[in-house]
Design a protein around this nucleic acid. Structure first.
Lengths: 149, 149
DNA sequence: CGTATTTATCATATTCGCATGAGAAAATCA
DNA sequence: TGATTTTCTCATGCGAATATGATAAATACG
C-alpha cells in the first residue's frame, strides 16, 4: 500500500512524536532503533524538513524535531511527499474516460473506496497512532502471569 | 493500486470479454488496440492461460479466448497471478505485532479498508465492468447536438 | 510440401525504487 | 583555533518491474 520510503517516513515521524520535548533527535538514533538505513533515512527526514513538518539542526545536540503537535499532523502530510495519494489514478483501468461523464457502477464503487482510503490518511493524525503504539497497558503484567502454568 | 502488469491483464481480459464469441483474438490486435507492449502482453496472457482463465491456440485463426463467462470471472482471479492482494501486509507500519493481540484503533480502521478492497476484487466480475464500458448510451446523439451552436 | 500466421520462450535492455559510501558544510564545545 | 558532532549532498550500486528483440515451435492453408 505504502512505498517503503513512505513507511520509513511514517515510522520515523511516529518515533519523533513519541519523543517529543526531549530536544532534537539525531538520525543515528532513529535509524538504529527502527532498523532503517541511516543515509536513506537522512534524506527522507530532510525532505520532511523542507516541507516544514520537521526542523533540523546540525552539530552537537542537533537532530530532528516535529514542528507541529502530533495531534495536528495528519498521516497524509507525512506520506504525501513520497507517495502521491490524492492525485492517484481514479479509474482502475487507467483510462481517462469512464471517470465523470460515463461513470460505471464498478467505477463508483471503486472510487468510493479510493476516497475512503485518502480520507483515512487525511483524518487520522500521528497522535491517533502513537496512543495505541505503546499501551504498556494495565495488562503487561497480566500477560506474564498468564503464561506461567 | 495495481501494478502495471496487473492493469494490463485486466484491460486485456476486459477486451476479450467484449469480443467474446468472435473466435480467438491474436495478441497483436489486443496490443495495438490497447497500446500495450506486444511481447509483454503475450507473456501476461500466457500466464492467464496457464491458470485456465484463457485458452490459447496457435497458427492462423489462433489467439486467446476466455474459457469462462465474464459474469463468472471475478477481478481477483485476473489480478491475483500478478499482484498478491489477499496476503498483503495488514499493518500500515509494517510491524508484525500490532495485528491481533494489541490492535490499535487505527489498525482496526485500516484493516477494515484493506478488507473492503479485497472484497471488491473478489465480488466484482468482469461482466460488471464491461456493462458500463460501452454504454453507447441514449445521449450519444444528444452530445453531438449539444456541441453545435 | 512450403509458406504464412500465431503463440512460446529466451536473452537482453531500460527504468526506478531502494540502498550504500564518502565527503562537504554547518554547528557546538574545549 | 581545532576537534567533534551532526545534517546535507553527491556519486554509485543493486535488484525487480517493465519493456524490447530475436528466434523457436506449433498450426493452418494453399
Amino acid at each position: 500500500m505504502l512505498s517503503q520510503t513512505a513507511e520509513y517516513a511514517l515510522r520515523a515521524v511516529l518515533y519523533l512524536a513519541e519523543h517529543q520535548g526531549e530536544h532534537p533527535i539525531p538520525v543515528d538514533a532513529i535509524a538504529e532503533d527502527l532498523s532503517i538505513p541511516r543515509n536513506y533515512l537522512s534524506k527522507i527526514l530532510h525532505t520532511l524538513a523542507k516541507r516544514d513538518l520537521l526542523s533540523s539542526s546540525r552539530g552537537r545536540g542537533g537532530g530532528f524535531e516535529l514542528t507541529v503537535p502530533a495531534a495536528a499532523l495528519p498521516l497524509l502530510a507525512v506520506v504525501e511527499p513520497f507517495d502521491e495519494l490524492e492525485g492517484r489514478q481514479q479509474c482502475l483501468l487507467g483510462r481517462t474516460r469512464c471517470s465523470d461523464s460515463s461513470p460505471c457502477a464498478a467505477h463508483h464503487r471503486w472510487k468510493e473506496m479510493v476516497d475512503r482510503v485518502t480520507a483515512f490518511f487525511r483524518e487520522t493524525t500521528v497522535q491517533d497512532l502513537i496512543q495505541e503504539t505503546r499501551p504498556n497497558g494495565p495488562d503487561a503484567r497480566r500477560v506474564s502471569l498468564a503464561v506461567r502454568p
